[in-house]
């Protein structure tokens, strides 16, 4: 799914890296717990979260994620935006709640991902 489609489906605002909206993502993860996110493996994923701190961007960076969607009208800080720009990670902000946002993307064909066994 194109990141621009995610933006449209979630009626989201683009906060940074608009030039990457044409990139594709193939899986998604919705969580406020970053270690749960780090337990997942899949290329080119999008993270949906209501958590707002720099570690969200670091987590996305470690996972080679292309896009982070902040739900529940949360907005990232200037420092987070700067970190995301350095790595070319698209930041989107949506008014939808986490459950609803994940449901919309899932029902439109963006399925989840698997956990790598310990």
């Amino acid at each position: 799914m194109k990141i621009s489609t995610i933006k449209d489906l979630l009626e989201a605002d683009v906060i940074c890296c608009e030039e990457e909206l044409g990139a594709h993502v193939y899986s998604a993860c919705g969580s406020d717990m970053m270690s749960d996110v780090l337990a997942y493996v899949k290329d080119q994923a999008v993270l949906l979260t209501g958590l707002v701190n720099s570690q969200v961007i670091r987590t996305a960076e470690m996972m080679d994620m292309k896009c982070v969607v902040f739900v529940r009208s949360k907005n990232p800080t200037a420092e987070m935006i700067s970190l995301a720009q350095e790595s070319g990670i698209v930041l989107l902000a949506s008014k939808k709640r986490l459950y609803e946002a994940c449901g919309i993307l899932y029902s439109n064909g963006l399925v989840g991902n698997r956990v790598k066994n310990v």
Partner: peptide
């Protein structure tokens, strides 16, 4: 802050 879910060490092993 998004950590302390008891996944840190298991993830390191993973």
């Amino acid at each position: 802050l998004g950590f302390g879910a008891g996944m840190g060490l298991p993830n390191m092993k993973r």
